[in-house]
Simulated assay, not measured.
Amino acid sequence: MSSNRVIFLIFDSVHLLDLAGAVTVFYESGCCGKHYDMRYVSPYQNPATSSGLGFSNVEPLSSVTVNKNDIVIVAGMEIKKWNRADDQLWIPWLQAAAATGATISSICTAAFALAAAGLLNGQNCTTHWAWTTILQQKYPLLKVMDNKLFVQSGRIFTSAGIATGIDLALYLIEEQHGAAFACLVAKDMVVYVRRDGTEAQNSIYLQNRQHINHHIHQVQDHIVKHLHHKLKIEQLAELVFISPRNLTRLFKSATGTTIGQYIQSLRQEKAKHLLKTKHKIAWVAKECGFSSPAQLRKSVKEA
């Protein structure tokens, strides 16, 4: 079997972007030089999307035997139309796939399917923000996490859904082919690369981005682009039309760090990088937003 095989499990009433986002990442990987054999399986002969579009080129589950090198991705579905009477059509297959050691991933509400199959018992996981509370209530053995793009527990991944399926797929690409290639695929797709936060960040542009708060992402983008300026919380708050006090609270909740600490860490890392390029220290200090070369030296020494 190819070690670069991705198997998409499709339920009836699947959400189109949950499926298409991840599919596109692996398709674009092929366009960038790393091909994936993509298979589409379903317990139903002609599953349809929640928006009414139907599929015809879908194989029965029995036609694909999963091995440990495969990636299985279960796309999210409309829970209200999810037919639990059909559990035995797919649960044994999914359990067998997990037992091989294959990578099992859910996008959005598909976390409910992984939970129903018993794959998330005692594990950290997530789903779309509108369903995290219900998932936890329905499956109390789970450790459901809020405000995460995606969560890894061993070789099982769960994502927050919709566009975060793209983030998860890019991370899986990075696992196999490295960060540089994942960034190339992201650039080809014209999307911003974010990270789960369990791995060391290799770029100042990606630090503390493991959340789904759009306003905080806007503030982070502004900070990164304006490190050479004096950054005031009042001005940052005006960017997203919230109070400075509320921004301070939301920023810490989303990122796990304060705005001041975030700015300081970015300035320190940028300074370390620029100093290696043999620029004059006075220029580096100004470019990174330090008031003087002495302040830069002190900050870098403390980092």
Rank of each mutant, 00 (worst) to 15 (best):
residue 172 L to S: 03
residue 144 V to D: 02
residue 52 G to C: 09
residue 55 F to G: 12
residue 17 L to S: 10
residue 154 G to N: 01
residue 72 V to L: 13
residue 23 V to D: 03
residue 301 K to H: 14
residue 178 G to P: 03
residue 208 N to I: 05
residue 92 P to I: 02
residue 278 K to T: 10
residue 300 V to G: 04
residue 72 V to P: 10
residue 252 K to I: 04
residue 57 N to G: 12
residue 175 E to R: 06
residue 66 V to W: 10
residue 145 M to P: 01
residue 123 Q to K: 15
residue 222 H to Y: 15
residue 96 A to E: 11
residue 86 D to M: 06
residue 73 I to E: 02
residue 98 A to F: 01
residue 255 T to M: 07
residue 146 D to F: 00
residue 214 H to Q: 15
residue 48 A to F: 11
residue 132 T to H: 04
residue 213 N to A: 04
residue 214 H to C: 06
residue 224 V to Q: 09
residue 172 L to K: 02
residue 154 G to I: 00
residue 256 G to L: 11
residue 215 H to E: 13
residue 33 G to W: 12
residue 91 I to E: 03
residue 240 V to Q: 13
residue 34 K to W: 11
residue 180 A to F: 09
residue 10 I to D: 09
residue 8 F to D: 08
residue 236 L to T: 06
residue 49 T to Q: 05
residue 80 K to I: 08
residue 227 L to A: 04
residue 194 R to F: 02
residue 284 V to L: 04
residue 25 V to R: 00
residue 271 A to R: 01
residue 259 I to S: 02
residue 288 C to S: 02
residue 184 L to T: 15
residue 146 D to K: 00
residue 71 I to V: 15
residue 34 K to M: 14
residue 240 V to L: 13
residue 200 A to F: 08
residue 180 A to P: 08
residue 14 V to L: 11
residue 257 T to W: 04
residue 65 T to W: 07
residue 127 T to S: 01
residue 25 V to N: 01
residue 31 C to H: 12
residue 9 L to D: 10
residue 279 H to P: 03
residue 282 A to N: 13
residue 153 S to C: 02
residue 302 E to I: 08
